[in-house]
Design a protein around this nucleic acid. Structure first.
Lengths: 197, 197
DNA sequence: TGACAAGTGGAGACTGTCTCCATATTTTGG
DNA sequence: CCAAAATATGGAGACAGTCTCCACTTGTCA
């Protein structure tokens, strides 16, 4: 599914140049560049750009694929080393912090999650799986409620991503995570008010 | 701010025709219609359309203004007749239910909330105020936590709106609201596990 | 090194947005 | 009731992006 074709040398070179230039421009806040001009900037023809990345989203996904993969890896790492609910909390908090300093990723995720096609949303799906796993583990451990699925958490994350440039982004995003986590925390009769470690 | 100019008769007629046709088309799922064709369908010239509604969002906002106002009125009504936290819950649940059967509104709100300009987001702002009021009242009543602001709730709502066409929309949206409400509920030492009345 | 496959690039077709202004309609005041 | 002034109309066409197409270049493989 990931790479079935051994791409010719020059093709790979162009592809990489495209991604590199895109990353650079995105980091600079230039998301809305004309697609044609963008090809020119990367030093390739329009056709080449379109052959490698049929849509703006495809390009964005390629740019952030590694970053997203790293995020997902971290999740699995946390899951392997912490109690389930702490892993979940740590991951979500970290995700939001990361998004705050990587606007491009937030923007891209918002788009990918909203993308109806589904086909190109591979990146978003990976995130979904990771969150599902974290939640499942915590449910199994009995530390969070079982009646709210990962879809709900993803929806909240989508809201966070979509709001990437609100003036009070950071505080609000943290607030959402706080609510989600507190909401998930299973109300146990035997706990009165002790804050989680 | 709302209406400073007493619009000529034919102008008002055209404006209304535009809104009526837009409502009809939106209700039918035709959001993405070519703007020019759309003018033709409403029986006015392109220029007229652009004069009345400079952007797609402006049109969408006009179409849903009443609907949104009704929603806000309901909030105030609830606030006047129910305990603060119940009013909040009732409003949010109702909002999500309404969004579920009015995709166009969800889509529009998602756009308005994401709109950076802010100027045209009047509709979204009204919703924000209503939610702020509901939250403030509940905080004052001491039934919800005070350390998470309305912005966070709005962000969650934005996520719900943005996901209007996900396959599992309803369940996930309900889940988000459940989490938000549970997360807001102030943990009180004197309550063990009694569900709210 | 030749021949075939793979990839390129950029001109230009196409699609939708939006402006402009000569013309038409409404309002106003005498 | 009738100008004149103010207001609004509409649609042709300028414009800005997107994306395709294919004659040509480059890489690969035996």
């Amino acid at each position: 599914m990931t790479d079935a074709k051994p791409l010719r040398a020059d093709a790979r070179r162009n592809r990489d140049a495209l991604i590199a230039k895109a990353r650079e421009l995105f980091a600079d806040g230039r998301f809305d560049l004309r697609f044609d001009d963008f090809a020119k900037l990367a030093g390739v023809g329009t056709g080449t750009l379109y052959r490698h990345f049929p849509t703006r989203e495809a390009l964005a996904e390629a740019v952030y694929r590694e970053e997203l993969a790293a995020l997902c890896d971290r999740a699995r790492e946390l899951q392997a080393t912490l109690p389930a609910d702490e892993a979940l909390e740590s991951f979500l908090r970290g995700l939001v912090a990361h998004l705050h300093s990587h606007e491009g990723l937030a923007r891209t995720l918002a788009t990918l999650m909203a993308t109806r096609s589904g086909a190109l949303a591979e990146g978003a799906q990976a995130l979904g799986e990771v969150i599902t796993d974290l939640l499942t583990a915590a449910v199994t451990a009995g530390t969070i409620r079982a009646d709210v699925g990962a879809g709900a958490v993803m929806m909240a994350v989508q809201g966070i991503c979509a709001a990437y440039d609100h003036p009070t982004y950071q505080a609000d995003a943290d607030g959402v995570i706080t609510l989600v986590l507190a909401g998930l925390r299973r109300p146990r009769a035997d706990i009165s008010h002790a804050p989680p470690a």
